[in-house]
Nucleic acid binder design. Structure first.
Lengths: 337, 337
DNA sequence: TCTGGCACTCTGTGTTCCCGAGTGCCAAGT
DNA sequence: ACTTGGCACTCGGGAACACAGAGTGCCAGA
């Protein structure tokens, strides 16, 4: 069905189209790549490729352009992820190493990725789910209000203000805090719910209503927030890549956290690359765009995902290389801190 | 020099140009606004206005377009800030009231502002400088590491990880924490440096080096971070407003926090509107764009600034009204929480 | 000081035309 | 059974051109 030469032709078409941004014709192909055959032969192959939906002709008598299906085949079978240059590696290391806390790690990562790929980069904050509790703090901040602060081993801090229904003396709060910390210290966030369920028994009767309020907020924080936060950078790169489809839609999609979350996708293995090409992704505003994403984490646990978003017509090998490399480095940094 | 009628003509030109986005000619003016004079007269006035640099002709035999100077005069003398409609007010209130913590207040504010003005909105996090300390927490997070968490009365939480040079037992940390909280509780952040300076005296000799390390980080956090954080939303609106100047530059400027910070400007009074029109602003990538900003705060203290950024050709009265209103509401919300 | 009239100057738009790139097909060659 | 060169055909996009319409400046008269 698709012999080697046809595949070579498809590869050549993708490469040329990506670099020139113009439909590529049989003659140009014969010139630039030495496929060892004449334009006429290539034309026959192209006809076959088009027949099967891998490429497409904008109009009669224009060159061919890869379809989403064509890119898919290219990514799956015709290309190899291109590793970064040594200089780029060093740049990543020095750039990431300077970060002092989680916020800054994330910030620098997203900028780095945007710069490296010249596309829009998206980084999800490390999920709470895989972290463990380092410390829980309950701070009175008013008459009947306390602030709940949760610190994880990944250095993340979550905070919520809680309204109480009754006045609670400082020492009762202190006691509650002590009990909470004893129970939860080092506890994996995913197992917090069970641990918390048993907790009221250890408290004096009178404190249980208050504890219940606080604990419900705590759980809520874990569940609701556990992977909402996203950061992105490099939107200016969108303007450069002249988007076929309105970039208004793309900008809108970027502001829809929910959409973005889904685009980053569910995890494959750690550092495993996910590529969604054009219409493969569920959001209609993002036809015309592809997403290359990977999970990152410390050790062997995936903490969250990161990726880039660009025109379907992107340099997949290079982009994939950059995403994979950054994901790995971030993992290392997180593990080391 | 500029009699009333000429001013009226200028106002009419600005209004028409803003609504139609096309150079406006004398006949159209005479038709749409009843100025009581003939097109010919208007032409004379326009010639005078052009002479003085308030309007400008793209080409011979095209209508006139306001210059930056023209917009400036319009904003300063010819327009009145347009208050929001009742419906809009209610929308603001309900939308902002739902926020549970500072992060969410800021997030909702920036979205609200973007939606209301159909432009790019920017909100600066409430500055620490004006807040007071609610609580300082020091949490051991490893052998020789502690995490410093600072909670302010505005609900903001700052965190930093600190490496120590020696092992420090829990109880010494606890003591340090107690002392810190006693001294700093309720202390205005701006007066923290002095307060902290006297602090070592209250500590046992042995703890002073550790305390010094921690305190220096504390101060650093206050100084360095006190107004770095910015959030924006509504970039999709940029695509709609067909920017004369490349929107690439605008997107780039948006990612430069420093530039943005300066654009929001130094404070006038609280809720006082600052308007920078086109070339008035210092960053060349933003010719073609205007910024409308205002300070917001709780009580009479300005905590930070917010604003919107859009094409020079924007509806100033409406935009200014929205910015001012949002600034006030946010102030109220912050004061109330 | 305002107004109507008039000649003039542009831009933007629509039309036409033509070039060239690219194709598909076919018949001949290996 | 492929591959190749030749050939007629198609179609998009740029250049040349004309033209209508909007707008202007200026001038003479009210």
């Amino acid at each position: 069905m698709l012999d080697d030469r046809k595949l070579a032709v498809l590869r050549a078409i993708v490469e040329d189209y990506v670099s020139t941004n113009e439909p590529v014709g049989s003659k140009a192909l014969a010139d630039r790549h030495n496929l060892g055959v004449s334009p006429a032969t290539i034309r026959n192959d192209m006809a076959a490729l088009e027949e099967q939906g891998y490429i497409h002709q904008p109009h009669t008598s224009a060159g061919r352009v890869p379809t989403d299906k064509g890119y898919r085949l290219f990514v799956d079978r015709l290309s190899q992820v291109k590793p970064l240059s040594g200089a780029e590696r060093r740049a990543i290391e020095t750039f990431l190493a300077g970060a002092v806390d989680l916020d800054e790690i994330v910030m620098r990562t997203v900028r780095l990725l945007a710069q490296l790929t010249r596309q829009v980069a998206v980084v999800q904050y490390p999920s709470l789910t895989r972290s463990t509790v380092r410390h829980v703090e309950i701070v009175p901040v008013g008459e009947r209000r306390v602030m709940l602060v949760l610190i994880t081993n990944t250095g993340r801090v979550e905070q919520r203000v809680i309204e109480l229904v009754e006045d609670v003396a400082e020492d009762r709060i202190a006691n509650l805090r002590a009990v909470l910390n004893t129970c939860l210290d080092g506890c994996g966030l995913s197992s917090v719910p069970e641990t918390v369920a048993e907790l009221p028994e250890r408290l004096p009767q009178e404190d249980r209503p208050v504890a219940a309020t606080i604990l419900s907020v705590l759980l809520e924080t874990l569940v609701e927030r556990h992977e909402e936060k996203l950061v992105f950078a490099g939107t200016a790169n969108l303007a450069a890549a002249d988007f076929s489809v309105g970039l208004r839609d793309v900008l809108e999609a970027l502001e829809e956290q929910v959409v973005l979350m889904r685009l980053l996708g569910e995890t494959g293995g750690l550092s495993e690359l996910t590529v969604r090409i054009g219409s493969e992704n569920p959001y209609t505003g993002l036809r015309g765009t592809s997403i290359v994403a990977a999970g990152y984490g410390s050790g062997d646990k995936e903490l969250a995902r990161l990726g880039v978003l660009g025109p379907t017509r992107m340099d997949y090998p290079v982009t994939m290389g950059a995403v994979r490399a950054v994901a790995r480095y971030v993992g290392q940094i997180l593990a080391g801190s």
